[in-house]
Amino acid sequence: METLYRLSNIRKSYGQRTVLAINELVLRPGTLYTLTGANGSGKSTLLSILAFLSPPASGELFFGGAPVRWNNAALLPLRRAVTLLHQSPYLFNGSVFSNVAYGLKLRAIRGDEQHRRVEEALMMVGLAGFEHRRARELSGGEAQRVAMARALALGPRVLLLDEPFANVDRDTSALLEELVVSLPGRGTTVIMTTHDPEHPDRLGGELIHLVAGELAGPLPAAA
């Protein structure tokens, strides 16, 4: 089976403290991964490396079989394949539409196609008709869902989610869980962090467990 990501001897440290040390990890496309571990175990650091937002201190990261070169020109197409959703997402000043359409505009997607995809994404998160609402005036749960729609509108190959259900009400949480579980079936790989011990079982994904920056427990199948 093909591989999506391969991490080889990845190290990341802040000052003297090593926050991430992964010798070998392979992630397959079209899969749901749940990334667990205590606070400070390196979950967010791993996500930001997988999102190509911050380079590892050493080691090699492969994406789609090719090694990742950490320079701006090489990173742009990679970043356009992968989207990270922060646990308390930042919404831009302006309307819900302008937020969800932001990534589409960057990809020079035409107006009518833009509208169609924004509408579709908002529908998926249960916010149909929210286009003209001001993003900053939404409730926490609504904001989380708009951020999810903003990521989904791009149709990314990989969606990285940092504690997506941590700051939302139960209804939103249920809706998002259902949505997230359906994504691998549509070809989007999902890697989400969580510290809810029930999540891995309930969502049925493959488990990656980090302890103090290192992989622990059974590893997901490599092939």
Partner: peptide
């Protein structure tokens, strides 16, 4: 980071 991950250069 938000702009970058949404595909901005």
């Amino acid at each position: 980071p938000t702009a970058l991950t949404l595909g901005a250069g």
